[in-house]
Amino acid sequence: MKAKHQRLVLAVVALCGVVGAGVLAASALRDEAAYFRTPDEVAGGKAAVGEAMRLGGMVAKGSIVRQADGLTIRFVATDGKASVPVEYKGIVPDLFGEESGMVADGRMRADGTFVADRILAKHDERYMPPQMGDMPKDMKAAVKG
């Protein structure tokens, strides 16, 4: 193979690679990126049933109900404007509690309940899970006021 020819082949291979990677990334981002929704947005019909998403809100006062199996809990997540019932089976994080902020990964079920696979709670004044930074302040005000 001539050097020039070979360079061309390499350039074409690299170009195909870059385009392929771009297409792969774009399609994966479209399919797999999860939206962060507030209860208000969910009530507004923004969350499709079965679509992976992240729900953020405050745990409403007096709403945590433990099921008989000792593992499943139900509670209501609210942002002061709307609320969404949440169901989670597992060990909740240490600082999870009523009237505090939480973020849950999961999806909406057809009956309007959000089924969480994982729950993150506000950890400490200085260290927080992602996306909780700006949330609790205004929501706290909304919930308490």
Binding site: A21, L24, A25, A28, L29, D31, E32, A33, A34, Y35, F36, R37, A52, R54, D105, P130, Q131
Partner: peptide, 22 residues
């Protein structure tokens, strides 16, 4: 991507499904 999306007013999170796939 989430940082850029947030700047454009959309809050999203990109998790393991994306990375595992690409």
């Amino acid at each position: 991507y989430p940082i850029v999306a947030e700047a454009m007013g959309e809050k999203i999170s990109v998790g393991p499904p994306y990375y595992n796939r690409v």
